[in-house]
């Protein structure tokens, strides 16, 4: 027996299963990052000394990374829009660009980390470096996870477009929601870690 509402929305909730699922997952992610932000605030409030982010971290590089991530969010929505218009070729270009931007973000992040390690700044250095590495590291893992799903949707997962185009479009919407959330987390991480 088929599970209902995998593609079409249920009339009373107006949602298909995966969309409600991803929003619930994002709600739990809000609490995960919320706890980490809470930790950051509590540690900083109680600290005798806490450096300004811009004294220790590379602001220009992080600004570029912010732009990269914002651009990837736009390319993500554009890919979804293209798919809704039935233009699979255009979708592939936009989605491919999203993947590429995710990759650029990770490369810049790696350069940033490497520079810190070169100056012997490790997580154990002080609680500022500890929060910096933990929060950006966890965020980076989320970017990586998103990239894996995007790669799957562009690669083996794209066969679904031929058989169940609506369900495939839904999948793109769902990964899009996740991707924008990861962008949103960065929008808060960037000023709290780098600019304050």
């Amino acid at each position: 027996m088929q599970i209902p509402y995998t593609v079409e929305p249920r009339p009373d909730t107006g949602l298909y299963n995966a969309k409600l699922g991803v929003w619930l997952f994002l709600a739990s992610e809000v609490m995960l990052f919320g706890a980490l932000f809470s930790a950051l605030i509590l540690l900083r409030t109680g600290a005798t000394s806490w450096p300004h982010g811009y004294e220790v971290l590379n602001v220009p590089l992080a600004t570029i990374n912010t732009m990269v991530l914002i651009t990837s969010s736009v390319s993500m929505v554009m890919s979804w829009a293209a798919l809704r218009l039935g233009d699979f070729g255009k979708y592939r270009k936009w989605m491919g660009l999203t993947f590429l931007l995710g990759l650029i973000f990770m490369v810049i992040k790696t350069i940033e980390y490497a520079a810190k390690f070169e100056h012997h700044l490790y997580p154990s250095h002080d609680n500022f470096m500890a929060t910096y590495f933990t929060l950006t590291g966890l965020h980076g893992l989320h970017v990586l996870g998103g990239m894996i799903v995007i790669a799957y949707l562009l690669g083996p997962g794209s066969k679904m477009w031929m058989t169940e185009p609506e369900r495939y479009t839904n999948r793109v919407e769902v990964i899009g929601l996740y991707w924008h959330f990861v962008d949103l987390v960065w929008i808060f991480l960037f000023p709290t870690l780098y600019l304050l």
């Binding site: 739990s28 609490m31 919320g34 706890a35 980490l36 930790a39 966890l138």
Partner: peptide, 13 residues
Amino acid sequence: LLAFPPLEAAGIL
């Protein structure tokens, strides 16, 4: 859903 993530965060820390 909403209470476990903070423990996950604490576990990571």
